[in-house]
Design a protein around this nucleic acid. Structure first.
Length: 646
RNA sequence: GCCGUUGUAGCUCAGGGGUAGAGCACUUCCUUGGUAAGGAAGAGGUCGUGAGUUCAAGUCUCAUCAACGGCUCCA
């Protein structure tokens, strides 16, 4: 007999070799039907795997994250079985579940191509196989036998996986006619998978390396019932409505044009208002932090990028140079070298530090065409950029102040889901991807880590993601539809100061090179506005809304008073428009609601007689009447405070 | 850049070898209407672009450009 300990601390004795499924059955049949995997002493196991020693067991169902993963992983195997049945000779690489939901499987179909139309046929096949309710059977396999199996099958990808595994640690899983090298865990049988959707076909480089062969990757998702699949598909539809590309078009924020070029957004009047409001916020915040504003040209000579060291590292992602007067000029893809030149323009003393130079600089990056993505990834971008020149003693305070600025912004925009990533260098790539200064790297990384720890800011460390000139903190955020991306970046640079021969006179009349902090808390206009569109679902808070108030006269009989109200709003600096179309009030309201304009003022006979306005708040309906002055005061207050919601 | 998919009116989409369609938006007229779609008429497209096949090409072939879903990349 062995003792099984449950999450609530209760213990029960079972025969050795009992499975999680047996345990569930001993509790109730209903539970047994739901259990699809188990956490045994902290490890996720098959529900059908025998337990031979005293263990702590947590039964896992579809409601548990690990249960879902086992479910999706098992569906990936089911898909592989269907693929193998349809395309004999296919070779498989890996087929994991995804944290974000669903699974994929990478495979080599040889010369065959898989079109998206064929997916529904595969789905059908998978459903047939699922109905057979085949068990997922785990088997320990000696390495030699495993190698022999995949050698016979001619699957060099699995052999590659095997080469990294140790004997005694190798398991096969078989369901129906399909056997795969896999560490598991899997659900008990295929019959549990009731609803399957294969979502897309894509190419994926083997091992993620673009020098390797491109495999075919099929993505899919599955559920234990049709209802949840329907809900999932419904959710995808909802997400589409919040997509910044759709909203950006609908709300007149930006547009793209083939004649202008790939990844080069044209900001429409409404989008430009959002840009200007964001810049206003940034300028206020930077003024309060004693930043100085500068403006620099869009191009610079090759020599400057050789000095900075950017060219050898990033030439491929810069627009090719233009030649003028026998000199090569590059479009700038970053502002830092220009700012360094401003630092160097006049002799500096320790009394000038810290010096903070800020600019909404326009940068151009020749991003690979396949990378471009709405506003999130563009080739012309406006960075909320600044460079802080300081000494080592000042560094901690400066770095902290930058982080505080991030947090201030997050609060204003209601961003509560974010992760700070401390990105470090990779010692193996010194001299290639990173400047070859091993000691300086370690010293600076320690400096940054210390500040983060002292400020109690939670962060994760990632090796091999630093900038070429120093470590950085990237802030990952998630838009409301779950899209993850890097918003802000805060980088330390110990290299460019020396490369540009930047110096300041120290208190003891010596010379020293400043440390440089590169920071962009709002990232770029493009990415940030793309984020905000999804974050707010297009319903900007009043201070950011391109049109803040729409005035809706009930008929043209009231146009005189309507114009008075309009002029009063404009005098107060409020962005207002009149809808004087020959339409009924219900139609005007509907159109204004769809344009997501925060306030509507309905004006009819009653309002004219009383000298008031009837207020309607977007998404919330009728909000009573007020005098024009009272309404203006309220809206102005909301604007000045940059209130997130009323 | 690579793999796959898609390009028809401002937007959403139908039409799959025989003279270009719908709804919404737009213009004009009627209607002056009180909190999410009043009515009528009109205008608008060399079907992404360029070649080819054909008596005939949105429709079939090829090339090219762009967008979308991924991979790789992001100073």
């Amino acid at each position: 007999m062995i003792n099984i300990t449950f999450p609530d601390g209760a213990k029960r004795a079972y025969e050795a070799g009992v499975t999680a499924l047996d345990i569930a059955k001993s509790i109730s049949e209903g539970l047994a039907r739901k259990v699809i995997a188990a956490n045994v002493n902290g490890e996720v196991w098959d529900a059908t795997r025998p337990i031979h020693a005293d263990s702590a067991v947590i039964l896992l169902t579809w409601s548990d994250a690990d249960g879902k993963k086992a479910f999706w992983h098992s569906t990936a195997h089911l898909m592989a079985e269907a693929v193998e049945a349809s395309f004999p000779g296919v070779k498989f690489w890996v087929g994991p579940p995804l944290d974000s939901g669903g699974f994929y499987y990478d495979m080599d179909l040889g010369d065959r191509k898989l079109s998206e139309e064929e997916l529904s046929a595969l789905e059908k096949k998978m459903n047939e196989l699922a109905k057979q309710n085949n068990a997922y059977v785990r088997k320990d396999v000696p390495k030699q036998e495993a190698i022999q199996y995949f050698t016979e099958k001619g699957d060099e990808y699995k052999l590659d996986l095997l080469s990294n595994l140790e004997d005694g640690n190798i398991t096969f899983y078989t369901q129906g006619n399909f056997t795969d090298l896999c560490r598991g865990p899997h659900i008990p049988a295929t019959g549990i998978i009731k609803a399957i959707k294969l979502t897309s076909v894509a190419g994926a480089y083997w091992k993620g390396d673009e020098k390797n062969k491109m495999l075919t990757r099929v993505y899919g998702i599955s559920f234990p019932n049709q209802k949840e699949l329907d809900e999932y598909l419904q959710m995808l539809e909802e997400a589409k409505k919040r997509d910044h590309r759709k909203l950006g078009k609908e709300l007149g924020i930006y547009t793209m044009d083939d004649d202008v070029g790939q990844g080069l957004p044209l900001w429409l009047p409404n989008g430009t208002i959002v840009i200007e409001e964001l810049e206003k916020l940034a300028k206020e915040t930077e003024d309060a932090g004693d930043y100085k504003r500068v403006v620099t040209p869009h191009i610079a000579k090759e020599s400057m990028y050789l000095t900075s060291g950017h060219l050898p590292y990033y030439q491929d992602s810069m627009y090719p140079p233009m030649e003028v007067d026998g000199q090569k000029y590059y479009l700038k893809s970053m502002n830092c070298p220009h700012h360094h030149k401003i630092f160097a323009a006049e002799p500096k003393s320790y009394k000038d530090l810290p010096l903070r130079l800020a600019e909404y600089g326009t940068c151009y990056r020749y991003e690979q065409s396949g990378e471009l993505f709405g506003l999130m990834r563009v080739r012309c971008l406006h960075m909320n950029d600044a460079h802080i020149y300081c000494n080592k003693e000042q560094f901690g305070d400066e770095f902290r102040a930058v982080n505080d600025m991030y947090l201030k912004y997050f609060k204003i925009f209601g961003i509560d889901r974010y992760v700070m990533r401390l990105s470090l260098h990779d010692p193996e790539k010194l001299g290639q991807k990173y400047i070859n200064e091993p000691e300086l790297w370690l010293e600076t990384e320690a400096l940054v880590r210390k500040v983060l720890v002292e400020s109690n800011i939670p962060f994760v460390e990632v090796k091999g993601e630093g900038a070429f000139y120093g470590p950085k903190i990237d802030v990952q955020i998630w838009s409301a539809i779950g899209r993850e991306f890097t918003l802000a970046t805060n980088q330390v640079d110990f290299a460019q100061g020396r490369r540009f021969n930047l110096q300041y006179t120290t208190a003891d009349n010596g010379h020293d090179v400043p440390l440089i902090i590169h920071r962009a808390p709002l990232g770029t206009h493009e990415r940030f506005i793309g984020f905000l569109l999804e974050h707010y679902a297009g319903k900007f808070p009043v201070w950011l809304a391109p049109v803040q108030v729409k005035i809706l006269p009930i008929s043209d009989k009231f146009s005189e008073y309507t114009k008075d109200v309009y002029r009063a709003l404009r005098r107060a600096g409020i962005r207002a428009e009149i809808d004087d179309r020959n339409e009924k009030i219900g139609k005007k309201i509907r159109d204004t609601e769809l344009m997501k304009i925060p306030y509507m003022l309905v004006i009819g006979e009653k309002e004219v007689n009383e000298g008031k306005v009837a207020i309607r708040r977007q998404g919330k309906g009728d909000a009573g009447t007020k005098s024009v002055e009272e309404f203006i005061a309220g809206v102005k207050n909301e604007i000045v405070n940059r209130a997130d919601e009323v």
